[in-house]
């Protein structure tokens, strides 16, 4: 009889377990909560697989190991200094205890539209490195997530790393999460913005992503185009906010109404008004 939980020390030890059909567990903060009260099925913990960890610059990307915890990423200078929009999200994800356990890989594969790292990673145009015993492939994050809890992860595959093209150092990076309380809150709306301006404050490039306003995180191409060439003044941001409202499909749930989400989604950018 096989053990109901294991901690393989390497990917090579993991592959045969995946073939047995075990479920992957990283921090367990999503998986074990979802499984509460159910008959336990076998899991394989990734936490001892060194190759799934580490933060480094690689081929022009900042590579974030999928099993890095939110807390360890937050402590990393590359994340804090080069990716403040992501750091802003990590800072308000769950609680310190959740951040000590939950991983960025788990946040992505959970594929919740409220996953806090997702809006920043969408705005950063992140890619994913997926590995299996047959090899590796690289996919854009936005194409990988299909809907709530649904991803393009194939059987036998593991998310190994998140590859983030670092924005220009001068780019403005902004994150805001709206929850019903200040810690341990699932986002009702979140906004991630990466905005590059010229020396005069005119927007050269804007990347805007909204969380919790549809089945997946939403990039807002119309709004991004509208912002290009303008300054971050109140008038421009009001117009861009209105465009953002038209690019999302929020729903009513326990935490907030669709109307509220839509309203706030268009308001949040105003925080940047100069």
């Amino acid at each position: 009889m096989s053990r109901n939980a294991r901690c393989p020390g390497s990917l090579d030890e993991l592959w045969p377990l995946l073939e047995e059909g075990v479920t992957i567990m990283a921090g367990g903060t999503d998986l074990l909560v979802r499984r509460r009260g159910q008959v336990p099925a076998p899991v394989a913990c990734l936490e001892r697989i060194e190759s799934l960890r580490g933060v480094r610059v690689h081929e022009g990307f900042i590579s974030l190991g999928a099993c890095e915890t939110h807390a360890s990423l937050l402590r990393h200078a590359l994340v804090r200094e080069r990716l403040p929009v992501l750091a802003g999200a990590l800072q308000v994800l769950g609680s310190p205890l959740i951040r000590n356990m939950g991983t960025i890989g788990g946040n992505i594969v959970s594929a919740s539209p409220a996953g806090d790292t997702l809006a920043p990673l969408y705005a950063l145009d992140a890619q994913l490195e997926l590995v299996s015993k047959w090899g590796a492939r690289r996919v854009p994050l936005a194409g990988f997530i299909h809907g709530p809890g649904r991803t393009g992860l194939k059987p036998g595959e593991v998310l190994a790393a998140v590859l983030v093209p670092p924005p220009e150092p001068s780019a403005l990076q902004h994150f805001e999460k709206v929850g019903r309380r200040k810690a341990l809150a699932i986002a009702v709306v979140s906004l991630a913005a990466v905005i590059l301006t010229d020396g005069e404050g005119v927007v050269l490039d804007a990347r805007l992503a909204l969380g919790s306003v549809g089945p997946t995180v939403a990039r807002c191409p119309k709004a991004e185009a509208l912002l290009a060439g303008r300054r971050l003044d109140r008038e421009a941001l009001l117009a861009v906010g209105e465009a953002m409202r038209s690019e999302i499909a929020p729903i009513d749930d326990l935490r907030a109404s669709a109307a509220y989400r839509r309203e706030v989604a268009g308001n949040l950018l105003l925080r940047l008004a100069s």
Binding site: S95, R180, R181, K182, A183, L184, A185, I186, L254, R255
Partner: peptide, 11 residues
């Protein structure tokens, strides 16, 4: 406790 919210230390 994920849906019925009571104040945390930050609230």
């Amino acid at each position: 406790l994920s849906t019925y919210l009571i104040p945390t230390s930050r609230d």
